[in-house]
């Protein structure tokens, strides 16, 4: 299982190679990329902060859970931190499974859990200001992991 929080650019080929096995008829790859707009504002770039050691721990827990829930063969989860320009990849997920259905469903579930639970934060920088985005999809209150409030 490949789990990493890093300031370095993310490498798709490395993630795919990490999850490929001869038993895997399907490999599903997800890229979360920096978009040039959010909620009607033009985004110049993003800056990601993280609690790297805990982030990797939580990513590993989520990946283990995904493997068990969806019968995945392997997972790679990589998150980038620091300054990211438009179009760059902040989140890279690759999952492998015997057949395609598990890798689509498991991959989708993984992305959602990563966004909810991993201690990583993004700051949007616009032409005329900046703000930390706090909470799911930047709106509303934090969803506490089960039983933490």
């Amino acid at each position: 299982m490949l789990i990493r929080v890093t300031e370095a650019p993310l490498d798709i080929a490395e993630a795919v190679a990490a999850v490929e096995t001869n038993a895997a008829g399907a490999v599903n790859v997800f890229l979360g990329n920096v978009r040039d707009n959010n909620l009607g504002r033009r985004v110049d770039h993003l800056v990601y902060d993280a609690y790297p050691s805990m982030a990797e721990k939580v990513m590993r827990e989520i990946a283990e859970e995904a493997k068990a829930r969806f019968g995945l063969l392997d997972c790679a989860v990589l998150h980038r931190t620091g300054r990211l320009e438009l179009g760059e990849t902040s989140l890279l997920i690759a999952v492998s499974s015997g057949h395609r259905a598990e890798s689509f469903e498991g991959g989708h579930w993984l992305v959602n859990q990563i966004k909810k639970r991993v201690p990583v934060w993004k700051k949007e920088v616009w032409e005329d200001g900046e703000a930390w985005i706090e909470g799911p999809e930047s709106m509303g209150l934090q969803q506490a992991p089960a039983g933490m409030r």
Partner: peptide, 9 residues
């Protein structure tokens, strides 16, 4: 660690 609402991805 004090964890503000997370926004990774």
């Amino acid at each position: 660690a004090l964890i503000p609402p997370v926004s990774g991805g």
